[in-house]
């Protein structure tokens, strides 16, 4: 038949025995591993000064964002310099084509007759 008092006494005795007998000495090999970790992680642990370019880069989103921006810039420049036919057609459909109307004939503009005083 279970006896709660007896069980409590047993648990108290067990906890006290384990607390007293469990070893806590540190093996020198463990100490060496811990110190090796400390050496390895010291660079990680030390805070590095953050420059203005680093802050700007991080604010925008890091190197991947810069790469995307550079690619978009190059593509825009290329389209501006040498627009593909599809772009021209699309632009014409969107905003129409421009026509140049001259009120003077080309001969009249280029001719010097009648413009001299003499």
């Amino acid at each position: 038949m279970p006896d709660p008092d007896k069980d409590d006494a047993m648990i108290d005795a067990l906890l006290a025995d384990v607390r007293r007998s469990a070893p806590s000495d540190v093996d020198p090999a463990l100490m060496s591993r811990v110190m090796a970790d400390a050496h390895r992680l010291q660079g990680v642990a030390a805070p590095r000064p953050v420059g203005i370019w680093t802050q700007l880069r991080d604010a925008i989103g890091g190197w991947p964002t810069w790469g995307g921006l550079a690619m978009a810039g190059c593509a825009g420049l290329w389209i501006g310099v040498a627009p593909p036919l599809a772009v021209e057609t699309f632009a014409a459909g969107l905003i129409g084509t421009s026509e140049t109307v001259s009120f003077f004939g080309e001969d009249e503009i280029l001719s010097t007759e009648g413009t001299s005083d003499g």
């Binding site: 384990v18 469990a22 400390a38």
Partner: peptide
């Protein structure tokens, strides 16, 4: 001190903390 680059601080800290850490884990 360790974060500032002093490894002897890490050594003292390990000697101080590791036995207790180890004891807790073994128990």
């Amino acid at each position: 001190a360790y974060a500032a680059g002093d490894m002897s601080a890490a050594q003292v800290l390990s000697a101080r903390l590791l036995p207790r850490v180890m004891g807790q884990a073994v128990r």
